[in-house]
Design a protein around this nucleic acid. Structure first.
Lengths: 245, 245
DNA sequence: ATCCTGCGATATGTCTTACAATTAAGAATT
DNA sequence: AATTCTTAATTGTAAGACATATCGCAGGAT
């Protein structure tokens, strides 16, 4: 690991980059312990606070975890899909909010990705996935459900669909796409009529997947996408009204 | 913004979270200036180094940028798709390397996602996208190209394909999926014969997209996926050999 | 023999104080 | 009026100290 620092500013950034590269390259193995902050400070010839700032940068990316105590220190994290998903969701949320992405664009991406999962889901769905999907559909039909609960169940349904594809990398991507859209979805007011329509489509979709009927699953998903976009139309109107203010 | 901290440990983490939420919620506007480190320290009733650690965490996520000098400070970043892509790539790379994801799984996800882009690409491709794709195909045919250059050109080709779909959110996802796989792809040795095969498929693919022939584009992409998996088979063998050691 | 307790060592978490470097704005000078 | 100097504000870095958490070990009580 290089310990020379370019004198041109921001030591903590350079140190963070150096360590990050060592981790990515596998030079520092997973669950391996980094030298103590004092040691690192001595190696890089900087002060401990500077080293700490570098370590916090890495911690923010879930690359390391720290532990206090005698046998403590900074350890290389095995980046779990769960952690990565969390990260993906916050990034996706920020992208959507700060770049003012249209509802249409986000929904289009989300359904395109989901469509990509269908062939695999039709092949690999297990009874467990189907049970989850059916349970969520049942939940969506219960009375007195708030719009937010309805959306949450919707997310759970689609998450089960994606999981059915049995590819963790796909699931990871989808988690970001679906969950980041939830704030936008929550802005939709679901009438009893639209809920019934969505539930019908969900049922068709899950049964098509259960039967392994890819073509029908695709058709149904397309219908669901179209209907969601229709419902989302009002969000666009609201946003424009908001901007006009 | 809340300034009370739970005394149960890790102030810098709590402060970072508080500020991050303020940014996500839009409470702190893009390009807005945060209070100076000293001010923040006073507000949260902690020392300046602690505040700095919190700010470095946010800087690591590209949420803020800092500027020295009289009118300096920390400013809220507009998270650009470019920044987010960079981030996505590092995360995806880490996921693939540390979780020892199979080449098959990664490739499956990547091609599934790409397949999702085809319908949109067939509709929206512009002459500019087609020109890029054709230029990369030409490059792939030049003599004396190293395997890494060939892979880089491959990435550029597929990136153009994804861009042709005209959906930035989709492009963002795909950037992670495609680029994170590049280290794996680089491990493949491309024979003259396999290069020719890939170029043929690329040509078919781009021409199908140019003609808006969705079905043929899908068929060709599937063939490309199958062929890539076949070529990647050796990687699996190498990895297993490496583990056995 | 086993369990508990206390001590020490080590590491991170935080605070304090200080200085260096950078930048913008205003004052002073030519 | 233009240029230069000063000054103030702010981040970047350093050094030392103390607080806190945790493991390991020795020693005593049961």
């Amino acid at each position: 690991m290089k310990t020379e620092l370019d004198s041109a500013g921001d030591y903590s950034q350079q140190i963070a980059r150096t360590i990050r590269e060592a981790i990515i390259s596998g030079d520092l193995p997973v669950d391996g312990r980094l030298p103590s902050e004092g040691d690192l400070a001595a190696r890089f010839n900087v002060s401990r606070p500077t080293v700490r700032e570098a370590l916090k940068r890495l911690a923010a990316q879930n690359l390391i975890r720290t532990q206090r105590g005698a046998t403590g220190g900074a350890f290389v994290n095995r980046l779990s899909f769960t952690d990565a998903q969390e990260h993906m969701v916050t990034t996706a949320t920020l992208l959507l909010s700060m770049n003012a992405v249209d509802f249409e664009t986000a929904a289009e991406a989300r359904f395109a990705l989901e469509r990509a999962c269908l062939p695999l889901a039709c092949q690999r769905r297990t009874p467990s996935h189907l049970a989850t999907m059916r349970a969520e559909i049942a939940r969506q039909g219960t009375d007195g459900l708030t719009d937010e609960d309805f959306c949450a169940s919707d997310v759970a349904f689609h998450r089960a669909l994606v999981e059915a594809a049995g590819n963790p990398v796909l699931s990871w991507h989808m988690a970001g796409a679906v969950e980041a859209m939830q704030p936008l979805m929550n802005m939709i007011t679901f009438t009893a009529r639209s809920r019934a329509q969505i539930i019908t489509l969900h049922t068709e979709l899950s049964e098509a997947i259960a039967a392994g009927a890819l073509t029908q699953a695709q058709t149904t998903l397309d219908a669901l996408a179209a209907y969601t976009l229709e419902l989302g139309g009002e969000i666009r109107a609201r946003r424009q009204a908001k901007r006009a203010r």
